[in-house]
Nucleic acid binder design. Structure first.
Lengths: 248, 248
DNA sequence: AATATTTTGATCGTTTTTGAAGAAAAGTGA
DNA sequence: TCACTTTTCTTCAAAAACGATCAAAATATT
């Protein structure tokens, strides 16, 4: 792996989590501790990050977005676990759909499969993908202002240009009775269509989403495999009766 | 294999990935390490890429040229002048196409017209627009890695969903003989189609672009109105003979 | 066809990058 | 504070990449 490539991955990782552990980078980059350490020293010299004991953090020169900032450390951990497990489902050469949202975004640093093609409706996603040298297509359509996601009829129509091996979809609620749900019906339409166009569908949901129900239904539990960090005991049985779960 | 052919493949590869390993190129081109090395040296001398240990990467326009530091401020001033003049052409309720690129990006802060709809292929543009609460549509398609622009056949096909009152397009060269030109043929296709779909077309070009010629032709001078900060005296007459100019 | 020029591939000594091992420093908990 | 763990720093040798050079091959010129 090229030096510049490592730099980019490190910085990208930082953008997403705000902080990275050194050991995490060693694992992610598949290189030695010494090398990562040297990279961090170089990047700090370029004022691109701040080294802290055990890793590095981004220097907060500009005020980050309020929506993304309030995520707790635990949330980040959970999302990373889910993201890692999801990325692990990828095989070389596949074409996938990556839904907008922070959980699917957390998948990207863990992607190791080669020669994959990704279609997404997330603006941040496409940026992260191209900086990892992954072939990325963006759906066209109307920009939803807050979530940086593309939605609307044009996006739907656009999606018909593609067929996917796998779709990775985010959700706000996982409920045995009501299936997967999300607050925005427009986004629900997109997610639903993505499922129809894929061979297999994975729904990414950290443990806090179990039992929740939001306004717009995506589809039933049985239509997708759930990828999560851990299943709350209370929901384990009723949900396992209906669908498969991958626990990271 | 011809030298030029190798150059083309190397640069193309670089456009796609943003970075290439030397060994990767050796394999791809089926030639010796020495030759690839020499190619990279030549291409770097032509300012078409930056050599890094183990391969080459795209040069980031920011840090590459030594005299850029001082030039930046003047450039920004120019772009702002152009951007302001362009934004002033907008009327309430219009639907416009906004081309990717830094000059068109500079328009956005100056937009005052109400209730407008903007279609763009620029990732940064769409972000800037939604944060100004302007209704924005993004073209779908393949992401070009370094310019944050959407290109390719899907983007073209996508554009046919729209009709524009006005199109604002960036360029790299304005020449009396060769018309408007840009380095990337893929981007040229998009720009050309945008012009066809609009009632009126404006090309934004700061004064440094006059006289320049790049590889791919967009269209003739007479097909669009030029918006610029100032016209170099030398080009005033030949260009004014062919088209209209708005000077900010 | 013979000669000159350019391009190519291989070799080799030098420099840069890398990973490992051990010493030093920093954090942790009693 | 002291022992203990974890992280960082330093050093060194192996590996990878580099630049320079030269002869063979391809191409152009006469």
């Amino acid at each position: 792996m090229l030096t510049e490539e490592r730099y980019r991955i490190i910085l990208q990782r930082l953008q997403i989590s705000g902080i990275v552990k050194l050991q995490e980078l060693v694992e992610l980059l598949g290189t030695s501790e010494s090398t990562v350490r040297r990279d961090l020293i170089d990047l700090e010299a370029q004022h691109l990050l701040k080294r802290v004991h055990g890793g590095a953090s981004l220097l907060h020169r500009r005020s980050e977005e309020p929506g993304m900032e309030e995520k707790t450390f635990k949330n980040v951990q959970q999302k990373n676990t889910v993201g890692r497990a999801a990325a692990h489902q990828l095989r070389d050469g596949e074409c996938i759909y990556l839904d907008a949202g922070t959980t699917t975004l957390a998948m990207i640093p863990f992607i190791e499969a080669q020669d994959i093609t990704v279609v997404t409706n997330g603006l941040s996603h496409v940026e992260a993908l191209v900086s990892k040298n992954i072939r990325a297509y963006l759906l066209g359509g109307m920009m939803k202002s807050h979530t940086k996601a593309v939605i609307g009829s044009i996006a739907l129509q656009n999606m018909d240009n593609f067929r996917f091996d796998k779709a990775f979809i985010g959700t706000n609620g996982v409920n045995a009775e009501f299936g997967f749900t999300t607050p925005d019906p427009e986004e629900a339409l997109i997610k639903r269509r993505a499922r129809q166009l894929s061979e297999r569908t994975y729904v990414l949901a950290d443990s806090s989403k179990f039992g929740e129900v939001a306004f717009a239904k995506l589809f039933d539990l049985k239509e997708a495999t759930i990828i999560t960090d851990s299943i709350p005991e209370r929901w384990r049985k009723p949900i396992l009766e209906k669908t498969k779960i991958i626990e990271g």
